[in-house]
Every structure is written in C-alpha cells, then in structure tokens.
Design a protein around this nucleic acid. Sequence first.
DNA 1: CTGTTAGCGCTTTCAA
DNA 2: TTGAAAGCGCTAACAG
Lengths: 339, 339
Amino acid sequence: MSIQAVAAKAGVSVATVSRVFNFPDKVSGATRDLVERAARELNYLPNASARTLRTQRSRVLGVVLPTLLNPTFAECLQGIAQAAVAGGYAIIPVTTGYKLDEEERAVHMLLAGNVDGLILVVSNPSTSKALERLRAQRVPYVLAYNRHPAHPCVTVDNEAAVADAVARLVLLGHRRIAMVSGTLAASDRAQQRYRGYQKGMADAGLKPQPLVEVPFVESAVDRLARLLQLRHRPSALVCSNDLLAIRSIRAAHRSGLAVPADLSVIGFDGIALGEDLTPALSTIAQPSSDIGRHGVELLIQAMAGGGALDADASLLLPHVFRDGESCAAAPDGDPGDIA
Amino acid sequence: MSIQAVAAKAGVSVATVSRVFNFPDKVSGATRDLVERAARELNYLPNASARTLRTQRSRVLGVVLPTLLNPTFAECLQGIAQAAVAGGYAIIPVTTGYKLDEEERAVHMLLAGNVDGLILVVSNPSTSKALERLRAQRVPYVLAYNRHPAHPCVTVDNEAAVADAVARLVLLGHRRIAMVSGTLAASDRAQQRYRGYQKGMADAGLKPQPLVEVPFVESAVDRLARLLQLRHRPSALVCSNDLLAIRSIRAAHRSGLAVPADLSVIGFDGIALGEDLTPALSTIAQPSSDIGRHGVELLIQAMAGGGALDADASLLLPHVFRDGESCAAAPDGDPGDIA
DNA sequence: CTGTTAGCGCTTTCAA
DNA sequence: TTGAAAGCGCTAACAG
C-alpha cells in the first residue's frame, strides 16, 4: 500500500498525501479529511524505509548494554524504551556480555542499521574503541552508568554513594568491613565504587581490607563462603551490585552466619526484587529507569539541535540508601584493624 | 558514503559493487579485491534503508513482550537476540505491561516500522486483536509462552508441569496445597497452570483450594501473609511464577513461618536468580532462552520459505523440576480435605 | 492550497 | 564478467 494508491483514491497528488501525514495544517480541512479517509480505507501505513532514505533520519536509537540478566539494565531499558516511544523513536538493543569486542561489533551493527543515535553502557569509556569511532563519525551518543569527563554521561556518584554506605556501617559499629566486587577491570563503575570504599574506610580511620574480586561467570558463592569462614572474617560486606549481595547472603547462610545478626550486607543498584527478599536487601538504589529516560531525552534533544552531545551535558542523578533488613549493628567485641 | 563513491573509487559500476556485497562469487577475484579495498578505505557501509526499500525486506524482527522486569522475559529476549543476530536480523522489542491495548499499539508500531516478522507473548491468543491483524495481513509471526491450536507457538506444557509439581508435593505428604497466581484473565499461561493444579489435586483425590489470585501491580505480600495466618492454612504453595514464589516466601517469614519447615513453596519459570536465594527456589524451570531462540528460528525459516507460519509448526519444549530448598516434607498431623 | 518532479542509495533485470 | 538504467516509496523544492 503506497502513497500513490492513497493519492489516486483521494483524487489528489502524492505531495498532498505526504503533507497530510507530515504537516497537517498545510492542507485544507476538506482535503485532509478526504485523504485521511482514503488512507484509512486502504489501511495505509507510510513506508519507514522510504521515509528514512529520503530524510536521512531513521527515528531509531541504538542501545548497547552489558546484559539483560541483571535486572538493573532491564529496568534501565524500560526507561529508555518509554522515553524513546514518547519521543517518536524505536530502539534496537544489543547486549555485549561485558565483552569489549562485542561492544565494537554492536556499534558497528547499529551504525550499519542506520540508527540516528546511541545510548550505551560500556566497559570503560577511557579505553573504548567503540566510543572513539562514534566520536570520529560525529554520531550522537550518550553513556549511561559510565562516568568520564570527556563523554556525555548520565549516572550517579558511585564513589560518594559507597563512601556513604561505609560511613553508615561504621556508625553501626562495624570495623571489619570488606568490599565484594566483580572484575574491576571490566567496569569503570566497579572501580569508582571501590574507590568509594577506600575513601569511606580512610575517613573512618579504618584499614581497608583487600578487595574481594569475584569473576562474573561463576556463581561466586563458594568463594565468598570461604572468605566468611576465616577467623577474622568481616562483620559487614559492601557489594558492588545487588546480585553479588544476594550471593553473599547465600554464602553467609552456608557458612552458618545469620544476616544481619552475624553479618551485615549492603548491595548496590536497588533492583526491585531486593525488596521482596528476606531479609529485604539494604542497598544503594540508583534510579535506573531515570538514567535511561534522561539519557534518551538528552540524545533526542541533541539530535533535534542537529549535533552530537557535549560532555558537559552530563547528568549526575541522585542515589538513595534503601534501608532494608540485611544490615544491622555490629556484634560486640571486635575492634577491627585501625588504619 | 554511498555505493556510487565506492564504484567511482574502484573504477567499476555500482552494479559491480552491489554484487561484491551480495553475490561475491558472481564477480571476478580481481574486481572483488579492488572493490573491497575501495570500500574499506572509504569506510563504506551499505545503507540499510535503501536496501530495504529496494528488496522489501528489512531484516528486522519485532518482539512483543509483557515486561522485562520479570527476568523470565529478559532471559527469553536474550535468546531471541542471539538467534536473531545469528540469522542476520536485528530486533525491535516493545513491552506491553500486560495491557491489551498496548499489545495492539505495539503491533501497529512494529508494522509501521517495516519489520519482516514478529515474535510475541500475548495476554491471550484467543481474544487478541493484534493476532487477528497479523493473520489478516499475512505477516509471519510466532507466539512464545502462549499456547493455542490456531497459532504457531513455542512453549512448555504448563498444565502437565503444574500437575506434576502437585504430585511431588503430595508425595511429600502435603494435603493442603494452594495455588497462588496473578490475574487469571490477564494470561493464558496462568489459566493453563491453574488447570494443572486442579488436575493434580483431582488425581491425588484432594479438594482444590480456592485460587489465591493476586493483582500484578501491588506487591501481594500483605495479601499472602493474611492467607498464611489462617487457622487451616496451606502447608504448600504452588506459585504461577517465581516472582510470586519469592513474595510468598517473604509473606511466610512475615507470618512467622519457616520455609520449608512450616511451608513448602514451588515457583514456576526457573529464573537464574532463584538458585542464589536462601532457601534456593524449588521451581518448574522452563527453557526461556530456548523458547526465544526456537521462536526466532521458526520465524526465519518460514520467512525464507516466503510465507507465514503454520499452527502445526508449534513446538512444545521440555520443562524440568528444579529441586531447590523451598520444598520439604509436610509437617505431621494435618489430614487436609479429601475431595 | 495543491501539483510536478528530482532524487535519497540500493538491487536487479537486461544487454553487451 | 560487467554495465546501464529503472524504480522501490517517500519528501521537499519549486511552480502555479
């Protein structure tokens, strides 16, 4: 069903039909009705490819995410989708599994697919080939969760957030506080959060424990359980994300420790599911949906202005500490190590 | 960067360049090298819209899902994405939030976006306007999770799966077994699973309890806790999905019941996260990723054959009972109600 | 306010 | 094995 057919049926030119769909007020009411009726009767839908070819705008956004298996990114994608629809855009999401070459492949694929702009979560903005390429080709893009002075980013203050969480634990009497993280090298967020841990400990005059770094792939529960069976085990764990926190809680149980009586656990992300667990997860909640939404809004705005996005358009959204049940006062009698 | 530029640089016609990209063996080795070099140097990417306009195939698949906040569908989408990439397709996912009018809107949007085919999870195939439309317009599509004799579907045998779960509980000595479900009207799966519960109870000579139907939106924990404080409370719960099972466990704790000592809970879906919980979730695991993958493969296959998909191409994939820790022998002394 | 027409970048006959 | 040219459906000058 083409514009030709509609024009013929309505007895007008194709230009008029086009105007009815794109600039309705440039057409007289009578003609407009005529065309709209014809279009409806023919079940006409403008052909997106033809329109894209002609206008050089696809009204499609590419989305690059590490995975959808972590609810954080699924929530973010929902926010992205919502904002995209509101702005008249479709999205094509691609997941990379935290792998650098997949990031590049994803960007290549999306560029080949004619997307107008990209919103992405990369492993590390400083070293990303994919970003270089986008910059070189002047493709509008915005980063989500990442933070880097040279790129437009929408995220939270990871460092401050974790430092704050550590301070709360200290206030509860904890001294042996350890941090559990995924592979540091695979994520700038993990690095920022670790710095936040170090800062929090230093601020409290405590000696930071060695980072407990668990690979993404294996479930990590065994590794964590081993840690918790040590003689001078931590009384509190700050985890770099909620999934790790959940596994830490499992590890605690397996080691015969009660959460939060024997061990406090704090997560990061604020996945919705955390509130339904027992104990409900104490966590640093970031506004994942908003991060996605704002990212898209910035992007659309920039594209309307015709250009790429500037680093100083970056947004730092507020995080909140969500007080659950996995966090309590420290058991007595452990002085910990003073820094 | 257009095919013209590449042709000029390589000193050949645009037709030859096109052939190099589409039918490499129809071009002599020397010419091919020439063209490939030129393309590389110019950083040429064929324009997807132009190609789509000309060939009438977009190589894009539409995906309609209820939500990504339930990890089940996120897992499924990963499977879909993987199979789509493997088959040379991009995907455009749209979520409907279990709302019928959103289903229609989604299909409309995707059709306007020139997708070649659709994979969707609808509320109820029997009553779906969206499906009618697809059928009428002869658009290739396949359903995931849904099951209906008149449509091509990829799913599991929900009824048998739940009946089997009930049988296991009976074997463990349970008599008062209740089913917890989301809004029945909103999902054919929920209806099938409920029938499975009824069948399982009947097979054991037990009287089915009234269905505990909790709305999707509110967290349901309060409602469930109330149920569990009744005098003749159930000793086991079969839940229509894992999210409900998790909330049921929370409700149990809140009511002072231990899981599985005082209450057994079985979920449905087999979300990965369930294995990291304490107690680890006992659940009927369906192969979500495979459901997505097979759906896409069927679709691509059908589209290659030029036509829509037939109902008898439907696939029933195997489910497995994943034995976790949320399910144990019934406490003594409750005879239950005999049917 | 409406119509005519060129051309977006590509694939695909048809001819050489 | 290669090239010339038509045309996919649409938008946007431009003309009237």
